[in-house]
């Protein structure tokens, strides 16, 4: 049975060595690619899924000879896929979301919350220690998930300043949550 449209990745009419080249690219960059995607998507699981999708797409290509920098290409694909993914996620979260009202009923016992509450308090304390603008920019961007341009408009700041505030707040939260105790 001949399938004219048969382009299964494994035996695609790819250049010899294409799969090996993709595998090498995978080995070399997988860790940072997932870190990059997690940073953009706020979810390690989603990041791994999208990284997988990137490789599947690369394998399905006929070859990479015409690509100057396979590494840059890899990241560009990941960037595009993450933008699509975020857009879809935004649409989903705009839809009415019933279970949200239910979660309070299933509230676990306080002691199971103790650690999470402590970390949460640390972030709250860290944010209280910062100038109002700094924590506001951080919360709008990271917690509410608005992009830099939207936050900039809302706060009447430049995007560069918003990034500066977010980065400053993040470093401060890191310090309160992760910094090694020095005594």
């Amino acid at each position: 049975m001949e399938d004219p449209d048969h382009r299964a990745p494994a035996d695609a009419a790819a250049q010899p060595g294409h799969a090996e080249q993709v595998a090498a690219l995978y080995r070399e960059h997988h860790g940072v690619l997932v870190a990059f995607l997690q940073c953009r998507l706020n979810s390690r699981a989603d990041a791994q899924e999208i990284a997988q999708e990137v490789y599947v797409k690369l394998l399905a290509m006929s070859g990479m000879e015409h690509i100057d920098s396979p590494r840059a290409f890899l990241f560009r694909m990941a960037t595009n896929l993450s933008v699509d993914y975020l857009r879809k996620r935004a649409v989903r979260s705009n839809q009415p979301h019933e279970p949200q009202d239910e979660d309070w009923q299933a509230t676990p016992l306080p002691e199971q919350h103790a650690w999470a509450m402590q970390q949460w308090k640390r972030v709250q304390i860290a944010l209280r220690e910062l100038p109002a603008k700094t924590s506001r920019a951080f919360v709008l961007h990271v917690v509410e998930g608005r992009d830099f341009a939207t936050v900039a408009r809302e706060m009447k700041l430049s995007e560069r300043m918003v990034r500066y505030h977010v980065s400053h707040a993040l470093a401060h939260c890191w310090e309160r949550c992760f910094a090694p105790e020095v005594s």
């Binding site: 970390q119 917690v143 992760f178």
Partner: peptide, 12 residues
């Protein structure tokens, strides 16, 4: 960087 990623994910 991983810790910041964890922080970001955890806030979300």
């Amino acid at each position: 960087f991983d810790q910041l990623n964890a922080l970001g994910e955890w806030l979300c």
